[in-house]
């Protein structure tokens, strides 16, 4: 269970402070599939960063079961992330001087995952094992970043626009693969997306508007990656 309580986060200096998150509270049950929607600049990425322990909120708490990660010291948060969190960033952030294999291995080693190559195959990059990020297209880089997070076998997977650079066919394939892994390992998914159709795959849909939750609802039935529109 993940609980966010009154999360407030602002950026900027004393003269011009800008409150990006204006008191967000939320509960996510284990194994849930949450989709966060919202306009650009509404604070989705920031919320994801706070929720996953990459950033500290100015005030408020982030509780995983009973542990408040927003008050843990840095090294504890780091080892917390090691045990629990997988992250797929909007901008991929691959290591430029490591090939695909090693980039994914970075995640796999943390979980002692020996068959991470299957994941690379599954996202369709088996042929590009020894290519460097600079030699890959945007969508291929995005898939490396997805494989890297999945290889870590996280308890909670955070995805920021994971299909933004993918065409329909690849996008569906990747989403389907993520869902199948979710069914096998039972991890929780928190996904930010601009694609309204993807929301139909989720259990819980959250709509954010200028740093607040504007709307939250449960889907009665979930569609699969091949049933939704694109």
């Amino acid at each position: 269970m993940i609980k966010a309580r009154d999360i407030i986060k602002s950026y900027g200096n004393r003269e011009s402070r800008f409150q990006v998150l204006q008191g967000i509270s939320l509960e996510i049950t284990d194994g849930d599939f949450v989709v966060i929607l919202g306009a650009s600049g509404s604070g989705k990425s920031t919320f994801l960063n706070v929720l996953s322990g990459l950033e500290r909120p100015d005030s408020g708490k982030v509780l995983y079961d009973e542990t408040d990660i927003s008050s843990l010291p840095d090294d504890k948060v780091t080892s917390f992330r090691k045990e629990n969190v997988g992250f797929i960033f909007q901008q991929y952030y691959l290591l430029p001087n490591m090939d695909v294999d090693k980039n994914v291995r970075m995640g796999a080693d943390l979980a002692g995952n020996k068959d991470y190559r299957n994941i690379i195959e599954a996202v369709g990059l088996g042929e590009k094992l020894h290519k460097y990020p600079g030699e890959l297209s945007g969508g291929e880089q995005q898939r490396v970043s997805i494989a890297r997070a999945l290889a870590k076998r996280p308890r909670v997977l955070f995805l920021d626009e994971p299909t933004g650079a993918l065409d329909e066919r690849t996008g569906r394939q990747v989403l389907d693969y993520i869902c199948r892994l979710k069914d096998t390992y039972g991890f929780t998914i928190v996904m930010v997306t601009h694609n309204l159709n993807i929301a139909e795959m989720a259990n819980t849909v959250i709509r954010m508007n200028s740093g607040k939750i504007a709307d939250i609802y449960q889907n009665k039935a979930q569609k699969t990656a091949y049933e939704i529109g694109w």
């Binding site: 990459l54 090294d75 780091t78 080892s79 917390f80 992330r81 090691k82 045990e83 969190v85 992250f87 952030y93 290591l95 970075m106 995640g107 943390l110 870590k152």
Partner: peptide, 14 residues
Amino acid sequence: TKTIAMMRVFGYSQ
């Protein structure tokens, strides 16, 4: 720097 930061994100210790 970027590599180290990314390793920290993933949970590699200092």
